[in-house]
């Protein structure tokens, strides 16, 4: 990120590019695994597997899935297996958790290495987390919320084991999470929130998780599309960025949460897509690559991934199509026969 000769200074927004700096983002992601002399690298080990999923998916959308070594990645994923829980932890020796287990499944599918999985044990782990109300916990100790429900539904669907799930119970729970604004809360009774930034920095969008889970379960009929899409469209602020709920600041990661929900509801056009695209591009680091939450802030792999994912949904030229329901390359989901009726914008020419 540093270049010699430039003194310490805050970066001004005017230096930002209006084009996607694809090559820089590729090299930014490649370097992430080599920053072992950064304290932050070690302090985020509890998110390592998620980070690999974010980085690898971003590279795949940039049409550079080979930029990280395939064998090394698969071996790392397998080294995160936690024999005791029968699931994947975020890092070797960490406890198995639903969030990292979904990341492991997604990575292995994208690397065409699903044969490495002990599918039966993972399915057993996931099903053990469902509560009598229908919602899911993240692990044996964890609290429940709809993000975990989405992870469970997504993972079971990817493994072709959705028939083992009590779908009715899941849908009933999601219906109880519905709010008067057409949105969904994180637990039955909680207000609508396009994402829950303070919770784990992963699958935090509540509305997205509920809508995507319902899409996978083929039950979008329970969504009040007009009201929800209205609420989502009102998340766009004058600078083009999207916020997570009324009267809050914009953030690049909402580009994905809001956009993917809009795509699933076939309402992306209710946003000003040009302005949104410009906002995401303005949050790039034009020197070191990567995308931040807002222009001029520190970049990270989470926002880099969700920024590029948002641009892919918006039809940005040169990017690979993303499936907004599973947040994986569309061609892979299509090949698995799992494609749902979402609608991204048409890919633009350069």
């Amino acid at each position: 990120m540093a270049s010699s000769g430039i003194s310490t200074s805050s970066v001004s927004a005017t230096e930002n590019s209006d084009k996607l700096l694809a090559d820089l983002h590729v090299s930014y992601i490649q370097k992430l695994g080599q920053s072992k002399d950064d304290l932050a690298y070690h302090l985020t080990s509890h998110l390592r597997l998620n980070a690999i999923y974010w980085g690898f998916t971003a590279l795949s959308m940039l049409n550079k899935p080979d930029a990280l070594d395939r064998e090394e990645m698969i071996e790392f994923v397998m080294s995160c297996w936690d024999e005791e829980t029968g699931a994947f932890g975020a890092h070797p020796q960490h406890d198995g958790h639903l969030l990292s287990t979904l990341s492991a499944i997604q990575i292995l599918i994208m690397q065409d290495a699903l044969d490495r999985l002990d599918v039966d044990r993972i399915v057993k782990f996931i099903l053990s987390l469902q509560q009598p109300s229908g919602v899911f916990a993240g692990d044996a100790f964890g609290e429940t919320d709809t993000r975990f429900l989405y992870c469970a539904v997504n993972a079971l669907s990817l493994l072709g084991k959705l028939d083992l799930l009590d779908r009715e119970k899941v849908v009933e729970y999601l219906q109880r999470c519905r709010n008067y604004d057409g949105g969904f809360g994180s637990v039955a009774g909680a207000e609508s929130h396009a994402a829950q930034g303070f919770l784990i920095m992963t699958f935090s969008s509540i509305v997205f998780t509920c809508v995507a889970a319902l899409a996978i379960l083929d039950r979008l009929d329970v969504v009040d599309v007009d009201t929800l899409a209205w609420w989502l469209a009102e998340r766009q602020l004058p600078n083009g960025g999207l916020n997570g709920r009324p009267e809050k600041l914009e953030d690049v990661c909402y580009s994905f949460w809001v956009l993917s929900a809009m795509s699933i509801l076939n309402k992306v056009q209710w946003l000003d897509v040009e302005k949104l695209s410009t906002f995401i591009l303005s949050a790039q680091d034009p020197e070191g690559g990567g995308i931040a939450d807002r222009p001029g802030d520190m970049v990270d792999v989470f926002h880099t991934h969700f920024g590029i994912a948002g641009l892919s949904i918006l039809g940005y030229p040169g990017l690979v199509d993303l499936d907004p329901v599973y947040c994986m390359p569309a061609s892979i989901i299509e090949k698995m026969g799992l494609k749902k009726g979402y609608k991204n914008l048409e890919r633009k020419a350069f």
Binding site: M1, A2, S3, S4, G5, I6, S7, T8, S9, S10, V11, D37, D38, L39, G197, D251, D285, E287, A292, D293, R294, G296, D297, M298, V299, D300, F302, H303
Partner: peptide, 23 residues
């Protein structure tokens, strides 16, 4: 990372902070 401003460092500054982090 949310809301942390991007700051540019010189090579020297970067190395100094790395040394401090190493321990």
């Amino acid at each position: 990372m949310h809301g942390i401003r991007r700051v540019r460092q010189t090579q020297e500054e970067r190395q100094a902070s790395k040394r401090k982090e190493l321990a």
